[in-house]
């Protein structure tokens, strides 16, 4: 089947919650003096936490697939695995096509650089080529409406201005696979409407989308299919209406 754009096979992801409390010298001394402490540590249940267990799904070309589930269900972990940021403990994910991860915007902004310099830096971080950024530069600037601040260090920007610039850089591509964590509406009211419209046009523009949201309304509106995750386990995959209704029933609303 060559129409599959993303394929996840038995993906499991383990985090070790105890990593923060790894072995330290201080602990070593304490245990040396008091062997009981050492025994206690060894007997403690291990802190393995499975954020995802045996998750499998396929996303076809042009499909818009939603991911729902309560906080901590593993949605963001799944997005990060598809984006290649995390490597699954078991199983594998294959993505066929260039991915635009709109998970967190403005990755790699340097506050000391000007807006112009940051467009190029952030673009490079997103994997754009120099030629591409140069050709789209005017479009990015026009969308962000920051023409008058191009030579100002981003340090002096308001947080809304930074978000507008980041959003404009991120959405200038036409990716084959778009990964979105919530509708990212940023800036003031006018820009929020504009950014939401842009997101919708990207989602509806025929690209393959993997979309996380807590709003079942927007999921029902946008998605063809929905994957419901609960504590890292797939509870159901099906049409948006069917799965959303099941999910809402489970949550008790």
């Amino acid at each position: 089947m060559d129409n599959v754009m993303v394929r996840a096979e038995n993906v499991s992801m383990m985090f070790n919650l105890g990593i923060e409390k790894g072995f330290s010298l201080k602990q070593g001394f304490v245990e040396l003096l008091d062997p009981k402490k050492r025994k206690q540590r060894k007997e403690k249940p291990n802190n393995d936490f499975w954020a995802l267990q045996d998750v499998s799904f396929e996303i076809g070309r042009g499909e818009v697939v939603g991911l729902i589930g309560s906080n901590g269900a593993g949605k963001s972990t799944m997005l990060k695995i598809v984006a290649g940021v995390l490597k699954p403990t078991r199983g594998k994910v294959e993505a066929y096509g260039n991915i635009c991860p709109m998970i967190e915007l403005g990755a790699g902004f340097d506050m000391d650089l000007t807006a112009r310099e940051n467009v190029f830096l952030n673009g490079a971080v997103m994997g754009y080529s120099k030629k591409f950024i140069e050709s789209k530069f005017d479009e990015i600037v026009a969308f962000s409406e920051l023409q008058d601040f191009l030579e100002v260090p981003v340090r002096n920007f308001s947080s809304g201005m930074v978000a507008r610039l980041a959003f404009s850089v991120a959405t200038v591509v036409e990716p084959e696979i778009l990964i979105v964590d919530e509708i990212l509406s940023v800036g003031d009211i006018a820009f929020q409407a504009k950014s939401e419209e842009k997101m919708l046009s990207m989602i509806n523009g025929g690209t393959t989308v993997l979309y996380v949201s807590h709003s079942t309304d927007s999921i029902k509106k946008l998605c063809d299919r929905v994957i419901w995750l609960d504590h890292g386990v797939v509870q159901g995959i099906g049409t948006s209406k069917e799965i959303c209704d099941q999910y809402l029933k489970m949550v008790g609303i």
Binding site: D112, L121, A124, G127
Partner: peptide, 20 residues
């Protein structure tokens, strides 16, 4: 080929920031 431009940007970023 894919990340050469990013490398270029990271190096020139450091350079710009150093003497700002």
């Amino acid at each position: 080929k894919k990340y050469g431009y990013l490398l270029d940007q990271l190096v020139s970023r450091d350079f710009k920031v150093k003497y700002k």
